[in-house]
Design a protein around this nucleic acid. Sequence first.
DNA 1: TAGTGACGAGAAACCGATTACAGGAGATTG
DNA 2: CAATCTCCTGTAATCGGTTTCTCGTCACTA
Lengths: 332, 332
Amino acid sequence: MTIKDVAREANVSVATVSRVINNVTSVDKNLRIRVERAIEKLDFKPNQIAKSLKQDITNTVGIIVADISNSFFSGVIREIERTINPEGYALLMASTDGNVQKEKDAIEMMHAKRVDGLVICHVSDDIEALIKSISCPVISFDRNTLSHIRDTVYINKERSMYDAVTYLLKRGHRDIAVISGAKGLSTNFDRYIGYMRAYYDWSLMARKEDLYFGEFTKEYGKRSFESIMQRDHRPTAIVTGSADITEGILAKANELKVRIPEDISLVSFGAISFQDVLDLKITYVDEMYIEIGKNIGEMMLSRLKSPKISPRLIVLESGIISGNSVKTLDET
Amino acid sequence: MTIKDVAREANVSVATVSRVINNVTSVDKNLRIRVERAIEKLDFKPNQIAKSLKQDITNTVGIIVADISNSFFSGVIREIERTINPEGYALLMASTDGNVQKEKDAIEMMHAKRVDGLVICHVSDDIEALIKSISCPVISFDRNTLSHIRDTVYINKERSMYDAVTYLLKRGHRDIAVISGAKGLSTNFDRYIGYMRAYYDWSLMARKEDLYFGEFTKEYGKRSFESIMQRDHRPTAIVTGSADITEGILAKANELKVRIPEDISLVSFGAISFQDVLDLKITYVDEMYIEIGKNIGEMMLSRLKSPKISPRLIVLESGIISGNSVKTLDET
DNA sequence: TAGTGACGAGAAACCGATTACAGGAGATTG
DNA sequence: CAATCTCCTGTAATCGGTTTCTCGTCACTA
């Protein structure tokens, strides 16, 4: 079932059929009706692949993240879809599991399939050459790409961490631990700098043993928290790097009968989904996945319309939502 | 940058380049080397679109669900991806928001893009004609498609509901409410039948006012629970249709200071993610998204290899995981 | 040495659409 | 009324690969 069959059925040329379908230039009314009848009769559906080949447009945007079942990513993706779908774009997705090779494979696959645009939350910095070699617009998110001139959307994590730590310092905490994801990610470097800057501004020395940079997982949250609880000298507060980590901490705290905030205070990056089920309201930094997704989607649409405009950087400033997971300490 | 450029650079025909790339038939060693050098030098990446057009194979599987940010769906999708990625398939996704028109659009889009296979958790039964018209294999999941002969993967929800209700009946409950999603979905019809069957077997009459069929959302869970709490004659137990609904109930119960299981017992379809944070362990029916995703992925791969074999139905039997959210009532 | 077969490489058709180009019919103008 | 212009429509090229077909070369056999 191709455009040829329709042309034969309607007794016109394939060109005319194509013109009717895309209603470009005026077509004689009678012919148009004949073609439309034929299309209906044969239940003809144009082959996008052929169209894409000729026009070099696929109406597809690729998205590469570590794990689509992570609620932050799936939230962002959902919002991107909501934004670009009305304009006719579909979403081709790939997960990397944080694996550099998989990430490279995913980028090559997206290029091979000629996506019109690519959204990526990259794991490795080793992909710049690859990205440069593919010709479509690329938007990075949740990662700072200082040196690389490219469209980017992210939350100012340095600022957020600075605010979170300052929030704790103001309430008397002087020994604050950080539990976050892999050290190599820019998003964690940003957190590190924010932490150090707050300590610097308060003329305090940070302790190396207070920095836990491992994985953005519930499991890592559990492990780190347990290890903190076994220390002789414990921090009085913890800032986590993601909602998953926070959940791990809460689970382990529940298991070990550690009370929050009585025994240790907690500030989370990202809200946990069951906030309203607990009497404990976690103080958290909003991860704003809806805003991020929307910004990415809109940026992509504008970029697809005008590829030539210079790269833009959208830095979202997030705020702290106060709960009751932080205890105010007496100054001594 | 096309295969022609490579052919010119290597001073061979395009056919030879193609043969080298796909290493089909033997190619002279010298020529092969020349071609490989040219590919490397020009950094040539074949255009999948062109290949797809000729071969009528896109190496892409489509997936259509209501909402990708729903944790059940994103979990299933992740597992599907894990299964089919190693075989070279990518995932094209579309959300429907439970909207019939969007669902139809999504199916047409998938067909236009000529996916090799399609996985769908459909909203409407009104799509059979559409599905039949597209020529690729289609797998339904989490929906019973009694009348339609098609590959299907789902959990036996009738049985699960029967077990859940029986579990409660055995513990002395005689007035059990159900809060679940839209009445029109087969998955809820199945729950309904399971519920009625249990009541029948125990020679009890079900009450119409105990059946809340609305939406699979946290919000609906809250609303329904609140309305239950305002009733004069309250049920002693609730079975929910999804983890989202359960979360809504827990949130509202926390707000209204209703204690579980002291004031009302609860059984959930699907585990909540923060089970281990609470002292309350919800008794739940495992939703088995990993098994579902894996079964779908494997079914799809086998189907893509042998399209002719007759449709298969995989019905997963789920079990009840006991917690402490159900109170045993004294028989009166 | 002529005939046969195997093998490898290039030419060209092909996939299914879009689109540049050419040409015919009818309208407009001098 | 002839020349020119417009407007449609069809023919054929095109997108970038794959694949069939054809043909030349070489080894082997009779």
